[in-house]
Design a binder for these strands. Structure first.
Length: 193
DNA sequence: GGAACGATTGAT
DNA sequence: TCAATCGTTCCT
């Protein structure tokens, strides 16, 4: 079956411009022999000029993928137990990325349920660390090009602007006023209502 | 070498 | 409201 990969040339821009464009696209992983998929419903932008961004103080060992080519993954480990998955944006050398905060499960829900140890479909992928667990995303996918297995993004119809909500980002202490969180209005799988 | 903390989650 | 839990960053 031919895959219709998401066009990563759309990601050669500032993170907050790319972010809403990623809504509605399909995230797919085929790890440990199990394929799961979901529609991206919530994202947050992190720019190099943004004090809330890992890349704000320049390149380090952890954040170096953010300075890499657009369209690759930036996966980081946090709170001693969770992974978060980002899609790198901007030109090579520019440190920015879009955090994927939630997806709506569309394939492999039984697999995600086992991985998450949960029963409610609504709670499988409604958070950045939750979806990483459901999709089996970890450091092995760090810097992975998202136009190839085992983790990739496929194209899908754009979400109308009237259905995209702009809001403040969650869990940050700096630059809180920026409306760089985007989610699909009335979608049941967004992390917080 | 050491301390402080985090783009979270789930239980209390 | 709070504990879990450890890699990364930054300071000494």
């Amino acid at each position: 079956m031919k895959r219709r990969y998401f066009d990563i040339s759309k990601l050669s821009d500032l993170a907050y411009k790319c972010a809403p464009y990623l809504l509605g696209k399909t995230l797919i992983s085929c790890i440990d022999g199990e394929q799961v998929a979901g529609m991206i419903v919530e994202v947050e932008a992190y720019e190099q000029t943004d004090p809330a961004s890992h890349s704000y103080n320049g390149q380090t060992v952890r954040n170096s993928p953010m300075f890499g080519p657009p369209g690759q993954a930036y996966v980081y480990f946090t709170y001693g137990m969770h992974y978060c998955f980002n899609i790198v944006t901007g030109e090579l050398g520019h440190g920015s990325a879009v955090l994927i905060r939630a997806v709506e499960p569309t394939q492999g829900i039984d697999i995600m349920t086992v991985r998450r140890g949960k029963k409610l479909t609504q709670e499988l992928t409604n958070g950045p660390a939750k979806l990483c667990q459901a999709f089996a995303i970890n450091k092995e996918q760090n810097e992975h090009n998202l136009q190839s297995p085992p983790l990739w993004i496929e194209d899908a119809p754009a979400i109308p602007n009237t259905k995209i909500v702009h809001a403040t980002r969650i869990g940050i202490k700096e630059n809180q006023q920026k409306l760089w969180r985007y989610y699909i209005k009335d979608n049941a799988y967004v992390s917080k209502k």
